[in-house]
């Protein structure tokens, strides 16, 4: 049972890592900083298929790996702030049972952006950076809904695998 779980972790970390890489290849420059959040597909799958703790570990390892591979310490700090806040909100939203995976994913996406904006404001101590948030809210809803919808299809198909 334990080795099965270890293998599953490895598989999902690899998948999240590849998705993060694919995401860097997609030119998506309507506004700088906008991302599809493909890796959240894996975190969502872990959240619904395995549990809150497992989703946290996965998200954390992915951010550290991606940070060292494609980014630097400062981009990693933003990803961590976004990723951890997003995870917390998704766990709470799922527990509340108010939303389906689509709603949970939207909240995850939106709070990922909010977390990053908060760190940005603190880093450069300029509150006017918050004016980037409205557009990020709207794009977060669109990408979050898309990822949530895809995630629900995946979870339906792999039931019993975990």
């Amino acid at each position: 049972m334990r080795s099965k779980k270890t293998a599953l972790y490895g598989l999902l970390v690899a998948l999240a890592f590849i998705l993060s890489y694919i995401e860097t290849l997609i030119p998506f420059s309507i506004l700088p900083g906008i991302k599809l959040g493909l890796a959240n597909l894996v975190v969502m799958t872990a959240l619904y298929g395995m549990g809150s703790k497992e989703a946290f570990v996965l998200s954390f390892i992915r951010i550290i790996l991606v940070g060292f591979t494609f980014g630097n310490l400062s981009t990693m700090l933003y990803s961590l702030a976004g990723g951890m806040l997003s995870w917390l909100i998704m766990v709470l939203a799922k527990k509340s049972k108010w939303f389906s995976m689509v709603g949970v994913s939207i909240l995850g996406g939106v709070f990922h952006n909010i977390g990053q904006i908060i760190v940005a404001i603190l880093t450069v101590s300029n509150v006017y950076i918050i004016t980037y948030l409205p557009l990020l809210l709207i794009t977060g809803v669109i990408t979050g809904a898309l990822i949530g919808f895809l995630g629900s299809l995946i979870v339906k198909r792999i039931q019993g695998l975990f």
Binding site: W98, F99, G103, I106, V110, P134, L137, I138, V141, A145
Partner: peptide, 17 residues
């Protein structure tokens, strides 16, 4: 998708716009 999801979408989009 639940009704709450739709409400959530509308609330966030209205706030953003």
């Amino acid at each position: 998708m639940k009704r709450n999801d739709l409400i959530l979408i509308i609330v966030i989009v209205v706030l953003g716009i």
